[in-house]
Every structure is written in C-alpha cells, then in structure tokens.
C-alpha cells in the first residue's frame, strides 16, 4: 500500500514540476547553470571511466576470442556494440545517477530543511518547478552529449589499448568498428539515455523535496534517491530493450 502512496505522491510532484515557469529568463539562467554544474562538471569523470572501460572491454573480448578461426576484426565489432548498446547509455547513466543524483537530492533536501523551499513558496514561487524543471531540461539536453562523448572515448580507449598490448592492430580494430554498423543502435542508446536522464533528475529531486528533519535525513534522502533511481534505470533498461530490440 505504501508503495502506491509513494508513486501517487511522485506523480503529483511531477505535475507540479511540469508547470509553466513564472519567468522564462530565470528558467533559462537556471537551465544554463544546471548544464554547467551537473553536466559539464561530469565530463572529466565520464572521460576517465569511458577510456578505461573501453580498454577493459577490448581486452576481455580479445581474451575470449583467442581462436585462430575467428577473425581479429571481431574484437572491434564486439567492443563497438558493447559500448553503444550497453556500456555508454546504461553503465554511464548508472554512474551519473550516483554523482548527479546525490547532488540533486542533497541540494534540494538541504534547501528543504533550512526552510529555503518554504521561503520560495512564501514569495509565491512554485518551488518544485523553479528548482527541478531546469535540472530535468539540463540532463535531458546534456546527458545524450555526455553519452556520445563516452561512446567515442570508450572506442578510442579500446583501440589504443588493443594496439598498445598487441592484441588487435589498428586496421583490424577499425575494420571491426565499421563492420555491419546498425545506425538504429545509436538511436536506441539515445532513447535509453533520455529516459534515464528523466529518472536521474526527478527521483532524487522527489526524495530531496520531501525531506523532513535535518542533516541525517538529507543523507538518507540522498541514498534513497540514488539507490531507487539505479533500480529504476535497470528496470527501464530491460523494458526499453525488450520494446526496441525485439
């Protein structure tokens, strides 16, 4: 029963969030701020992870394809598909759920317990929309850019370490990356990313917005936000894959 009350409360919150901003200039300024504070600040982190995971994926595939009957270009092909279909959209989104989700939940939660949200309401401002809508737009806009960046860097990481370790030559790897490329796979990755961005922006915001108490509860809201958005990402990953790739 409690779960249905929570879901109902979440959708009422979302309805409040998706209302017309009182001032578009304020909304635009907040949107740009959020793009920088949530998105641009994650570039280095995503780049580091993508390069090394790309390398590991290549090494593992090479290890599993150690058979003279299998052509080496398959390493590039399998690396490309693993990265585009799963690693960049899903795994990077899960990592971003931790980074961005905890930031969103703790920021909004702290604003709640220090009465800053009450102060916004008192000024006649729709606090949910004012605080959360720019974050949603920022993530829906910027996460696909981050994921694209991640795809490129992971493939580059795979190629570099494949060449560096002598497991796969540049020509073979690049042949594999270009072989039997299905453009829809990239669209599928973007569709997933946008869904995951919505989850990362709204669920931690929801937990932060309804925080009661003090610092301890802000920490708990942050944990709940991250854990539950990760669970939802995993569930939606399955559902979207079932719908789009079957």
């Amino acid at each position: 029963m409690k779960i249905f009350i929570l879901i109902g409360k979440y959708f009422i919150f979302i309805r409040k969030v998706f209302s017309r901003p009182s001032s578009f200039s304020v909304f635009y300024k907040s949107f740009i701020d959020e793009v920088f504070s949530l998105g641009v600040s994650s570039i280095g982190f995503v780049a580091f992870i993508s390069l090394f995971v790309g390398a590991v994926v290549t090494l593992q595939i090479a290890y599993n394809l150690e058979n003279p009957l299998l052509p080496s270009y398959l390493i590039g092909l399998a690396t490309r598909d693993s990265i585009i279909l799963e690693f960049s959209p899903t795994m990077v989104s899960l990592i971003l759920a931790g980074k961005m989700g905890s930031n969103i939940a703790s920021t909004i939660g702290t604003m709640r317990v220090t009465e800053q949200i009450d102060a916004l309401e008192m000024m006649g401002i729709n606090s949910a929309s004012y605080l959360v809508l720019p974050k949603i737009f920022a993530l829906v806009f910027f996460n696909p850019i981050l994921i694209t960046f991640s795809m490129f860097l992971a493939i580059i990481g795979g190629w570099f370490f494949g060449e560096f370790t002598g497991l796969c030559s540049t020509t073979e790897f690049l042949d594999g990356v270009q072989y039997f490329f299905i453009p829809f796979n990239v669209i599928y990755a973007y569709i997933k990313t946008i869904f995951f961005a919505l989850i990362i922006a709204t669920l931690p915001a929801f937990y932060g917005y309804f925080t009661k108490g003090g610092a301890l509860e802000v920490g708990q809201a942050s944990t709940k936000g991250v854990v539950n958005s990760s669970i939802l990402i995993i569930i939606f990953n399955y559902l979207i894959t079932q719908l789009l790739l079957n």
């Binding site: 200039s25 220090t114 009465e115 009450d118 102060a119 000024m123 006649g124």
Partner: peptide
C-alpha cells in the same frame, strides 16, 4: 517572511537573494 534560520539561498549572492522576488514579480 523572515524565517528562524534566515533561509537565505546559499548558492546565491546577497544581491541575487534579494533579486529573486524582484525578477519574479
């Protein structure tokens, strides 16, 4: 409204704190 803890927006400067209601309304 003056809240017990002040409830100033800590991510904004003092000027921006006072600017919020002015810009909005």
């Amino acid at each position: 409204m003056v809240f017990q803890g002040g409830a100033l927006f800590d991510s904004k400067s003092i000027e921006d704190n006072l600017m919020v209601p002015l810009i909005m309304f």
